[in-house]
Every structure is written in structure tokens, then in C-alpha cells.
Design a protein around this nucleic acid. Sequence first.
DNA 1: GCCGGGCGTCAAGATCGCGTCAAGAGCCGT
DNA 2: ACGGCTCTTGACGCGATCTTGACGCCCGGC
Lengths: 222, 222
Amino acid sequence: MTVVLVVDDDAAIRRTLGITLRARGYEVEPVADGRSALQSLAEQEPDVVVLDLGLPDLDGIEVLRRIRATSSVPVVVLSARQESDDKVEALDLGADDYVTKPFGMEELLARLRAAMRRAGAPVETVRAGDLVIDVDDRTVTRAGEAVHLTPTEWRLLEVLVRADGRLVRQATLLHDVWGPEYERETHYLRVYLAQLRRKLEADASRPEHLLTDPGLGYRFVP
Amino acid sequence: MTVVLVVDDDAAIRRTLGITLRARGYEVEPVADGRSALQSLAEQEPDVVVLDLGLPDLDGIEVLRRIRATSSVPVVVLSARQESDDKVEALDLGADDYVTKPFGMEELLARLRAAMRRAGAPVETVRAGDLVIDVDDRTVTRAGEAVHLTPTEWRLLEVLVRADGRLVRQATLLHDVWGPEYERETHYLRVYLAQLRRKLEADASRPEHLLTDPGLGYRFVP
DNA sequence: GCCGGGCGTCAAGATCGCGTCAAGAGCCGT
DNA sequence: ACGGCTCTTGACGCGATCTTGACGCCCGGC
């Protein structure tokens, strides 16, 4: 279970993030101030931290400094302020990303995933037979040979690999790879799955990793 | 029987959700305004509520506040893209999840199941002898072996399983699985019940779980 | 014993969804 | 402007699935 430490003095944001993240399958530890954040960091060992810079007790920048004194956990910073001074300082101190309020929930989720990805969280490289998929580097090798994927092919593979063997519905794939207005264009999936199979499977007509659930979606199994 | 209270002033959405949810074996209580919603909440005691925030009489937020005053029923909020303030407020007031319009039906169904599960609803796996039917995963195993069902076979089984041992009338099955214009086509039932029995029963000619009530309908008994 | 309605069974034809190929459009960098 | 790469779109074959018809069985009514 992936644990997210949410540090924000605004109760509405703590709850919004809490509910949203839990709905996506994360475990959430919400705290309201810097002191509690540092305490939770030590006790819970979260996989990623969401940190609001505007805190009542300690300055958010100071909290980040102390986090970095003891931990390399990925940190995504939230700030209401427009000035880029904080941003530069936060990134200098080792924040992994920076989101300005008001922010879209999907955007924040994407940044969190990206931060964890870069930090080498759960899925970093996946081995499947003679395939090696390095999610950080965006590289794929097959039997030692580098495989070239186009941007769209890669995004599709990434979504499937991150699902970790579970079914991903057609509408979800289309939404995540092509955008919300493409959710009914299943033709794309057929074309791109075929291309991925041709590049990744030993026998594209008998796929071992990129499997179809007819009428539902696709799944990647190592 | 799981009851879903659908609160939306848009008749098209009430109708779409009503048809889809009923087809999945839920009982649906559609209402158009907040006053009716609160009344239905008291009378029907639904298992989950789908609440549109943009209502004509009472503000959706106000409806949610009154729901929470008396009930802990899981609430999934529907919101238009622009109403992000409302969304935060709704989650703050105890909504369990939100879905932004326009939404995919499968996504909403998944959120509803997730919300009910978190609220402690019974896990939807049915065991019947050596059969295990997982309604969430859409999978069936028999003596440990995965059983492959076609989409129509699955929907039929799903409706029967959700009825929880009670008789389901022929017209109801036809309506829910094939659509309202098929309510007299009982031939389909004979064909598909035979297929299900062949796949699920030890001896298809002596069914133990998929039973016929001649002239009335069918029932699934564990 | 005969008949008819409801049910179960089988199988052929129609339809649907998926995989495949390839042509053309669009988008770079040179 | 050109060439190369990628994305989009249409056409088509194939297998799975659905639909439809034919037929046999059981049982109750006559």
C-alpha cells in the first residue's frame, strides 16, 4: 500500500485530498502543521509527501529543509503564492515538483505518480521474459536489443504496465492516452496494441504479455 | 437488493442511470429535486446515493448537509467541470467521491462499488459449492478453474446472483439483460440458461444452482 | 392415449469485435 | 521544400458471440 503524507493547514484541502487519494487506492496520512509532518515522516515512512508551503508554525520551506536532512522521500510542493521565489527555493532544497493552487486534482495525481516514479517507487523496471521495461528511462529492451517506441506507444504501454497485471478498461486507456474526448474510439487501441505486440511479443498472434479481455479492455502480465 | 438513490434534475441522466443500474441488478430510486431526495432517503433507506450538485430547489450542497445530518449512507457527487468550489465543499461535508460530468458509465459504477465497499457493504463474492462468483472482478471459478463467460452470459448470471436466491421473472431478466423491447422473447432465456448450466453445473440436466420456476422465471440458489 | 404448452437442446446463419495492413495526412528537423 | 517519422483513418478477414429456427421431451388436460 502506497502511503501519502499530506501536509496542509487548510482542513478542506486535507479532506479533499484524503478522499480523492483514498478513492484511488492510496493510504493517506493528513497532518495540519510542520511539527506533525516531521513526526509522521519518521513514524509512517510515507512513499510521497504533499507539502503546502503556507503553514502556521514552521515555514514550509523550513519543513522541507528538515525533511531533506533525514529523508529522500519525494516531495510535491503546494503553494497559493504566485511568486517564483518560493518555487526556486523549494526546488533547490530538493522538492520534486511544484503545483500552484488552485490545482486540478488529476494534475496533482499525475505529479504524484511522476514524483514517485522518479524516486523509484513500486514500479521502476519490469522484467517479463526477455523484455525489460524501464519506466524511468522510457526505454524497452528485448533480448538485450533496444526497442524503439513512439510516444503514443510508450504512453499506452506505461498505463498498462502501471496497472500491474490488472485489467484496464478500453475507456480508461483511451482517456489516459488520447484524452477524455476519445473514450469511444476503440479503433486506436486495436491499431496500437497490434504495434506494441509486433515490437514486444515473440509471436504477435499469440501474445503472452499484452492480453485482450474482449469487450472490456487489456492487461499487461509479466 | 442494493438500492441506489439517484438525485438529478436532468431527466436524461436519471433515465440513463436508471436503465444502466437496473441492468446491473440494482434497484433504482430516481428523484429530480432535493426535497424528494430527503424524503426517499428516509423512506427507502438506499445503500448509496448519486447526487448532482446542480439542483433547482435546494442547493446540492444543502441537500448533502441534510443527508449527513441523519445518515452515513455513502454519497457519490456528480458535478459539472466548473463547480470546483462546490466539489471541495461537498467532499468537506462528507461526500465519499465525486465524478465530473461528462462521465463514463463504467467509471461511475466502479466508484459506486468502491464507495459501498468502503462503507462496509458486503463483499460481492458468492460461493455455491465449488463455484466462486466475484461480481466486482467479473470472474467465475469452478473448482479452482477459471470459467470463461461471454458478455451476455455474465450479465444474465449477474442479475440472477444479485437477486440473492429470490425468483427473477422472465420479463425482468429479458428487460435487464437484453432490453425493454425483448420482454416476450423467452427463447433467449432457454438458450442462455442452458449455456450457463453447461458451464457452471456439475450435471447440466440436474441443475443445483440455476433453477427454473416453470411459467414464472429463474432463480440462483447458492 | 392424444394433444398442446412450456422447457431444454442443438446447430446454422448473421453479426460483432478484434487484429491486420496500408494509404494518406500531419508534423517535425534539416 | 524535402524526407522521415508518427498519427489517423479506412478496408478486410477471422473467430467469437449472438440470434434464430427446428426438434424432442415432459407433463397436465381431455
